[in-house]
């Protein structure tokens, strides 16, 4: 009898215990979002653990790009003017760098979570003759917004599902730390190229 009572009270005691703390963890906090992960530098944008899909329908995380400098632009494929021009600007930079090194990643990340699915990104890549150094990424709305804030890119979706956005070419070092940015279409690439060369 005593044992039963004991067990009963223990059960009650545990029943009353901190079940709230469990509910506090319902939302997932990216564990690595705010602390250095392994060898990823604490200033690196690759801290973002979210998963993206590439134009080849591969799942990928940003830290996969570590090891080489990375040039990043944010675009959407239905963009009539600015995005093709930004892509061309980055291609122009690639041409100038190629002779020095092939070891640079070129990343285009789409604002358009709804429409720029992998096959659409693949089409864009083919249309613009982007080589194997280029990866185009699709992410969900939340992930894309967080990334845009990390890259200081402004954007918003309009009623038609298109996007107004600033145009920035960002340069990340081998660890994914943002080291240089250049705003504008048809901007003078000299400083950007110099920034990349310093990372090679």
């Amino acid at each position: 009898m005593k044992v039963l009572l004991f067990v009963f009270f223990v059960a009650v005691a545990f029943g009353c215990s901190d079940s709230n703390s469990k509910s506090a963890f319902v939302g997932e906090v990216p564990k690595s979002a705010a602390a250095p992960v392994g060898t990823i530098s604490s200033e690196s944008i690759y801290q973002l653990p979210d998963t993206f899909e590439t134009q080849d329908n591969k799942k990928i995380v940003l830290s996969s790009f570590a090891g080489k400098p990375t040039v990043v632009g944010m675009i959407f494929t239905h963009c009539p003017y600015a995005c093709p021009r930004l892509t061309a600007d980055i291609k122009g930079i690639e041409d100038k760098i190629k002779s020095k090194s092939e070891d640079v990643n070129y990343l285009l990340i789409s604002f358009d979570s709804e429409r720029d699915l992998p096959n659409q990104l693949k089409k864009f890549s083919n249309d613009h003759a982007l080589d194997e150094n280029w990866t185009l990424l699709h992410g969900d709305e939340n992930t894309i917004r967080i990334l845009s804030v990390l890259l200081n890119v402004q954007f918003q979706k309009d009623a038609e599902g298109n996007f107004s956005h600033s145009n920035i070419i960002s340069v990340l070092d081998k660890n994914g730390v943002l080291v240089f940015q250049k705003e504008g279409i048809d901007a003078d690439p000299a400083e950007t190229i110099s920034a990349i060369k310093q990372l090679l």
Binding site: P80, Y81, A82, R85, N162, F163, S164, N167, G184, D186
Partner: peptide
């Protein structure tokens, strides 16, 4: 206009 895919003045 260079910064503005959605077109038009803000």
């Amino acid at each position: 206009f260079k910064n503005f895919c959605a077109g038009g003045a803000i």
